[in-house]
Write a protein that binds this DNA or RNA. Structure first.
Length: 354
DNA sequence: CACCCGTGGCT
DNA sequence: TAGCCAAGGGT
């Protein structure tokens, strides 16, 4: 099938689309796959430097499969949603072991790989292999919700199903790769969340939301929910040689697998930190310097981070292990660190001493 | 279905 | 400023 929607879109894409993104060069399934995972819930401008560095270190699926997880996570440091990196690493091993290092050109087989769902599988089929497949990412949802005036929040199953049906209908048999890129480009460049450029939209003549002057109503917004507030002590335990104690996070959960700072329960008062370090970590410290705290916001809660610097007298309580490492700041910064921890270790002066 | 999972840009 | 949310998927 090929309808007017696709024809207009492709004509616009030829003139105005993005044809020069890093993953458009040396295009293959591996590069398309990595870019798609990085681009999940993440904007293009944020992804570009991460993609380039990642490709320089892991040029193909074999290199990625053979890499230590720590190396993969260090390349993801700051990008967020770290399960994507863990799943990417796992899937690379799956591709090598189950598919002989060659990505399958099949929706179901692609979806069997960890971290690849319906839309990402379709994106790989279309972009890497040039075959017809239907994607439905945030851009496409917004474009189609407006074009067909689909009410409701796309998180609802019924709304989502309706959007998938429209997406399938519009997907042409020819130019699968270009069409997929075109509809995403339209969403990112013209049919934007706020201030859409309807006057320069190639499909505005058929847009139902535009016809009723109700573009702002679509797509429906997500029901809002208050984010809980949490608090934690973050300890900068520094020995006499300027080394800091880093602690690896558990393999799943927030910041899973990343290196962070030891934490203590916020129930401890600042005057109790010294004793708590002795009792919970077996480390003897001097009086703490309190560094100004700050709030870090996750997708589903706020975290007030209260850092404290404690000069360590006796390091013997904790030796280097799989879970702990004593490292200089520059060494620590080469690890996979959560963004706020990287900031804390990079710009300690920014946080005035109290 | 509801929740979990980061970060940064935009308004 | 504080909220919204972006090339989603897993559990």
């Amino acid at each position: 099938m090929s309808d007017r929607f696709a024809d207009q879109l492709l004509a616009w894409y030829d003139q105005h689309g993005r044809h020069n993104l890093p993953w458009h060069h040396n295009r293959n399934a591996y590069r398309v796959w990595v870019s798609e995972i990085m681009l999940q819930q993440t904007q293009v401008t944020t992804v570009i430097p991460y993609f380039k560095a990642f490709m320089a270190s892991f040029p193909d699926v074999h290199a990625l499969a053979a890499a230590p997880e720590d190396d993969v996570l260090s390349h993801w440091s700051g990008l967020g949603y770290y399960a994507r990196a863990r799943n990417l690493h796992k899937a690379a091993k799956q591709v090598v072991e189950e598919f002989g290092g060659e990505f399958p050109c099949d929706q179901e087989q692609l979806e069997s790989l960890t971290g690849i769902g319906r839309s990402t599988a379709a994106a790989i089929i279309a972009q890497a292999f040039g075959k017809r497949a239907t994607i439905l990412d945030g851009n496409v949802k917004r474009v189609l919700a407006r074009y067909h005036a689909v009410p409701g929040w796309p998180g609802q199953t019924q709304v989502l199903n309706t959007l998938w049906e429209h997406a399938e209908t519009h997907t042409p048999d020819d130019r699968a790769r270009d069409y997929t890129q075109a509809i995403m480009d339209l969403g990112a460049m013209v049919c934007t969340r706020s201030k859409p450029a309807c006057d320069s939209c190639p499909i505005s003549d058929g847009c139902a939301a535009r016809a009723h002057n109700e573009v702002k109503l679509y797509p429906g917004s997500k029901p809002k929910k208050a984010k809980p507030e949490k608090t934690t002590w973050m300890l900068i335990l520094e020995d006499g040689e300027g080394r800091i104690l880093l602690e690896r996070r558990p393999p799943s959960g927030i910041w899973g697998g990343l290196w962070s700072l030891p934490e203590l329960d916020p129930a401890y008062g600042s005057e109790e930190l010294q004793d708590a370090c002795e009792k919970e970590l077996g480390i003897t410290c001097q009086d703490p310097d309190l560094i100004s705290g700050f709030r870090h916001t996750f997708s589903h809660y706020h975290l007030h981070i209260q850092p404290a610097r404690l000069p360590v007298i006796d390091v013997s309580g904790i030796a280097d292990s799989d879970r702990h490492r004593w490292l200089h700041r520059d060494e620590a910064l080469s690890l996979g660190l959560p963004a706020p921890i990287r900031t804390l270790l990079t710009e300690p002066e920014q946080t005035a001493l109290l």
